[in-house]
Amino acid sequence: MSERVAVRKTYKLYIGGKFPRSESGRSYLVQSGENSTANVALASRKDARDAVVAARAAGSGWAGATAYNRGQILYRVAEMLEGRREQFVALGIPGDEVDAATDRWVWYAGWSDKLPQVRGGVNPVAGPYLNLSTPEPTGVVAAVAPAAPALLGLVSVIAPAIVSGNTVVVAASPTDPLAAVTLAEVLATSDLPAGVVNILTGRIEETVPSLAGHRDVNALDLTGVADAELATSLEVRAAENLKRVLRPVPPHHDWYADPGLARMTALLETKTVWHPKGG
């Protein structure tokens, strides 16, 4: 029996449920495991634009799905991630981090149908009305994942955004993008509708400014932006159409700690209805 030909892998973008190369045709080299390198797509502004189109198209279906169904799908992501644990470890992600990322999906999955109860409810009003507030998704969220931890940080940015019905375009860690592309393979096999999560690999300063200025993006999560000056300029661009903005986290943030509700609640809009009581 002859020796097998090595199956070399090209790490591509994840846009609209597909794995396209960058529209620009560019790629860059990153370290993969101990002593090999991999080619990863270097996303351009146009890839970012295409990703927003895909995220917008997926928005109404995902927001319209029942909270129960979204929870099931997030849990399914955890199932698939658990099954691929070894693959992430082979990429150099510590086993603990993969486990923590899996647990995080489960944790957020549980919140899908509880968030409306915590953040919404019946308001007391002086009049014969039933007054209800319910949280609704903001829409399309553009996010920057932290450079490290590559997997847990990425999951901690994506999951709280999509659990409530938002769709995201996320710029993965530029230095460690292999975990992100492998996570995309997990998402693609988890019944998550195409376009709900879109992952761009490459330079943050190339893709994110166009997302920050994009009029069809509703919120901007700057979590992984390390350069304070860039973060400020992105926030200024986001102000142009009053996007919700999540500021960068401090460099030594503990990603393993209980994440709390803040990341979910920052990406919600509250809808209040007045209903005449009668009688």
């Binding site: 994009h214 009029r215 069809d216």
Partner: peptide, 9 residues
């Protein structure tokens, strides 16, 4: 303007 426009506008 240099910024991508959205259909909402």
């Amino acid at each position: 303007t240099g910024d991508y426009a959205g259909p909402d506008y």
